[in-house]
Amino acid sequence: MQPFEYASPKTLKEALALLGGGWSDAAVLAGGTDLISLMKDEVMSPKRVVNIKEIAELKGISKTAAGIRIGALATVDEVLSNPLIRASFPALTEAARGVASPQIRNMGTFGGDLCQRPRCWYFRAGFGLIPRHEGKDLVAEGDNRYHAIFGNGPARFVSASSFGPALVALGAKIKLASPSGTREVDAEKFFLAPSSSDVREVDLKPNEILTEVIVPATAAKNATYEVRQKDALDWPLATASVALTMKGSTVASARVVLGHVAPTPWVSAEAAKAIEGKAVTAETAEAAGKAAVAAARPLSMNAYKVQIAAAAVKRALMAAAGVKA
């Protein structure tokens, strides 16, 4: 790890003043579960680390007129155990349950989950977000078993966020603050597929801090299904988050969002179309799962993820609708 300056401001305003115009100027530290490893591996070596954990206004989970506000500093464990979230947004509760381990859920924050960097092993080894070495495309020519099956490149990493797909499915808004003010971004637009290694994979500027997320109140039935090999301490191979607006027993409209299959949470209009107007059954859910992956373009080693993504969609739809397998 390279040396850095450290500050622990008490207010958002102070924190924002400590950030810089470039990514190497400063990094925001919350739970640290990703940043500290990145700094150890020297994938990131900021000159300054700004700890935001002492900023009260970034904490907490509360009910608002618009829905539920989740502060950036809410821990994953707080999300997991929050009854408001469990009652309305089981898709988020399930996503929280899938996060690594009790320790990580105690440390890691909601904002940190959204801003964490990809786990791509080439990226972590210092070859960049779109890793190349001696003119070769490392992901295409190398071991891409955990990489993207959607997105058409050049970025082939998968978004590591656990909450991203659920937030996109639920139409959440992400609030960002900078020294010049605040802005709000649709969750779907927050995640980006960069075209070069110099660009970030989220719509966040070096001098901005993610402050909170507003999940709009909804009657939609929602669920998340994660496929992980190991029960704990493992990254999903694919996930699906769904939100279904029901009309009686049929799906009036659906949002189906896949995780860990593309550089961003991947919205599947095809899967939504396949299930809309139908009742959720094992058969319709399976058909929607197939529709979700019809346009997948796997790499040399990860065709298996196409099958897993289809299964995740099927199972998330069934879970949301309360249909037993």
Partner: peptide, 9 residues
């Protein structure tokens, strides 16, 4: 192992 770089991933 990575074929191109020869490193363990």
């Amino acid at each position: 192992l990575d074929a191109v770089t020869g490193r363990m991933l």
